[in-house]
Design a protein around this nucleic acid. Structure first.
Lengths: 342, 342
DNA sequence: CAATCCTTTGGTAGCGCTGTCAATATCAGT
DNA sequence: ACTGATATTGACAGCGCTACCAAAGGATTG
């Protein structure tokens, strides 16, 4: 006897089966595939399980079936509001399903990401949701050789590992700039913090739109690797004004930066949009009620999380999407802060 | 042969043991308790594991050892910035430890919480971190009869289930009101959204402080069960002004509400603090850089998460804290929005 | 009525790891 | 050299569940 004997009050599948008068394997089938049971046994097992308060041992199930009902989620940050919306979508989609989330924070490091990926995949997850399209070559090959569905979120690109849901940050930024140009603004600056791959693509979109209009001037770009914050937005905006005092408008890499820029304008008694137009990115909730209301490029973060989780579930159940890449798009929410010049 | 044979390339503990020339159990001990091995074997097992890229099967480990290295975390919301700070603290504290997080969202429902609790405890977690002190009686008795360490966070109260880390929302709100009173404000309103137990205790603190000063007037309280947002802050503030046009100051149940109130003041061209003082709660990052800078009651959310996770780890390792209840306190960050009246 | 099929149920044998205890090696003390 | 104590190591069994196969029961057909 290698083990202390099991406590007699412990409810295992065996106990349920005994009470229901069936074999353990039949009781097991009730949970895996109830349709395979006859109606009578199904009811008997169900009531026995309820009566005893049976809760399956997931470790035993995982060991025996060689898979877990866990969906791994890799995000670069937990602080960023953007990801909390995505996570909410994921958790909502999985609510009531047998799947649970294993969340890990890569802290914007693709090497950390690779490490976490190995850890996750060793546990045979049901699926994986990873942020972005900039993985290490090693991460990519690990993911490509794995059996479970994988959804890359936040961005879209030409070569999905498996599935992808997001939007083009490049096009979204371009659309934001086009809006400013349409409104008559010409000397438009760019503020970017953190400068992760997605912010960089927004910068590229800005550059492209400005170059297309023959208006690009590198002195109007201020970026930093520092994590984003409202305070930082004010600082970056002050830096931009120092470098390029003649700017008429500023395109901000995200909404925190935009709010910080607005506050800095207020501090300097610069009127928005008369003296300075402001456009943000993501359209967080506060943008529509700031004074003046702040224009922003809306992204569908909640939907992204929700749909990514649904894509994983559909894929494990054999219903792969006809299109592996889903573009959720974006929309420029035009508000007072970028009203027509003059 | 009940099973398809194991793939020969699969790396199990057996493979590592074979390569290292030891028994599987000795290899196992290397991971559980390396000090119990002789130096030579320790090195042999380590290099064998590295060479083969061995990753332990957590399901098998959990099944055999009857416990998991998972810490369950129950929070009421993923959207609320407050909890994202707490979560960041928890994840940071556990980074590099063998423990992982299982996060679940109770959506501010104590019945959902009870359900999730049962689910968690069935998996024999290492520890549990739960939000607040308002559990169902059933939840409480489940948790009291369980072996693993449990930390209640966000609040402190008289009877911890096991351990507790937080602060008194009642005292924190009282301190915020005292500050306004000291600054010469008398007709002070209260704005509250969601009205979860912690916001209710802040309201009680407000009522106590106002009553102590013989200044309490129920018409100056506006609350709603609607989840908090900046926009809602503006709406609530407008409601308050309609009900009690003579107010001089407003104490907001959180910082989003405070920011919304500030924007509403700007919209109405009411100067802050001359015509209206504003005090928020939590001291989110933007409060210190708004225009004017916004006074807020700072709470130590990151530290709360970090220390809660550390308390769990310490407790499982047998080092129980001498004091089961930790009060992290708060501090009133006095800023322009509540500068002295006149 | 036998042959065939499909549905429903059960038996067997692990999944990969670790708790318990026993066995062996090592060492200090007498 | 011998005893007892301590450090290392190994054998065994089993954690609770499910994959696989086989068998039994019932329906259908020629």
């Amino acid at each position: 006897m290698g083990r202390k004997c099991a406590k007699p009050d412990k409810i295992r599948l065996t106990e349920v089966a005994k009470l229901a008068g069936v074999s353990p394997i039949t009781a097991s089938r009730f949970f895996r595939n109830p349709d395979a049971l006859s109606v009578g046994k199904r009811a008997r097992v169900e009531s026995a399980a309820n009566e005893l308060g049976y809760v399956p041992n997931l470790a035993a199930r995982a060991l025996a079936s060689q898979r877990t009902e866990v969906i791994g989620v890799l995000v670069p940050s937990l602080t960023n509001n953007v990801f909390s919306d995505v996570l909410r979508g994921i958790y909502d989609a999985l609510d009531g399903s047998p799947y649970s989330i294993q969340l890990a924070n890569t802290r914007y490091s693709i090497f950390q990401e690779e490490k976490l990926l190995r850890l996750f995949l060793a546990q045979k997850p049901t699926g994986l949701i990873v942020t972005g399209i900039n993985q290490t070559a090693e991460s990519r090959s690990i993911m490509e050789s794995v059996a479970c569905p994988i959804v890359q979120i936040m961005e879209i690109g030409p070569s999905p590992i498996d599935m992808m849901i997001g939007f083009s940050h490049y096009e979204a930024a371009k659309a934001g700039i086009s809006h400013l140009l349409e409104q008559g603004y010409r000397r438009i600056g760019f503020l970017g913090a953190r400068m992760d791959p997605r912010v960089q693509r927004r910068l590229e979109g800005y550059q492209a739109a400005m170059s297309d209009a023959a208006l690009f001037d590198p002195r109007r770009v201020v970026t930093t690797a520092t994590p984003s914050s409202v305070t930082l937005g004010g600082t970056l905006f002050a830096d931009l004004l120092a470098k390029a005092p003649d700017i008429e408008a500023v395109f901000c890499g995200n909404d925190d930066i935009a709010l910080g820029a607005l506050f800095e304008c207020q501090r300097r008694h610069m009127s928005v949009p008369e003296q300075m137009a402001i456009v943000g990115f993501n359209d967080l909730e506060f943008m529509s009620c700031a004074v003046p209301t702040l224009t922003s490029v809306r992204t569908n973060r909640y939907e992204m999380g929700r749909d990514a989780a649904m894509m994983v579930i559909e894929a494990v159940e054999g219903r792969r999407p006809e299109q592996p890449v889903v573009d959720l798009g974006f929309s420029v929410m035009k508000r007072q802060s970028s009203a027509r010049r003059n």
